[in-house]
Amino acid sequence: MKIARQNNTLLASTLILLLGIVYAVTAVAQDQSGPSVSDNVQDLKQRVIELNRDLFILEEELLFPANTQVAVFLSMDVGEFFQLDAVNLKIDGKEVSNYLYTEKQVDALFRGGIQRLHIGNVRSGEHEITAFFTGRGPQGRDYRRAVSHTFTKGGDIKYLELQIRDSIQLHQPALTVKEWQ
């Protein structure tokens, strides 16, 4: 009799264990109380995002005023002929950025993201930008190519976009520099 009772007790705890297994996937906590740590964290996140935005804009206005600012972006369209490893960027022969890409970053570019590669100051007048791309080209071979572009810096911010595109006809990546107005 005692053993039978013990067996029942043990099985009952097994059932509790089983409930745990089932609830692990489907249950959602029933906590319906008012403002919580999470609400507080959400408020703080929003506050910090807005503050970051304002500080970013203030920083740009102070350190990179429009009449000297040049901002360089990198984008990739399709990118099947080129697996990007690194970009070395020079303005007027002076290196301003040397960037190594992670797989995640390349994937983000491949999916349509645009990287803000460099932001700096130049005097008004003519300048030359040169970008050296290294990575894997068609058939997985080592690939290194450069693209140069001359631009005139005026009173407004100069936006330049380094574009990596696929040239279907040539079965090669095509590298270009686009000036944004």
Partner: peptide, 24 residues
Amino acid sequence: ADKKDPPSAANALGYGVMLYEYFQ
């Protein structure tokens, strides 16, 4: 689904930069 979608060209740089962070 994102992986399968063809990459979209961002018409505006700011939106593209946001996507770059989002995709990571």
